[in-house]
Amino acid sequence: MWKEIAQKLGMEIPEQQMERISPVLDRLWSDVRRVLDKDLSELDPAVNFHPDLRGEP
């Protein structure tokens, strides 16, 4: 899948590199889906980051 995406989007990633990173991307994708596929609509978009959450209740 990653190889096809890379080709379609013209990422110009060498074949050997794709073989190296594909398993890493598989694991990352699975982790990311687990932590981000949630209803986040109640959370404000973070345009700027401030570590003290200034201005928030």
Partner: peptide, 16 residues
């Protein structure tokens, strides 16, 4: 290069 923009932005939301 494979990170989706929507995932990046939602990651920043969860950061809060």
């Amino acid at each position: 290069q494979f990170v989706l923009a929507t995932d990046y932005l939602n990651a920043q939301r969860r950061r809060r």
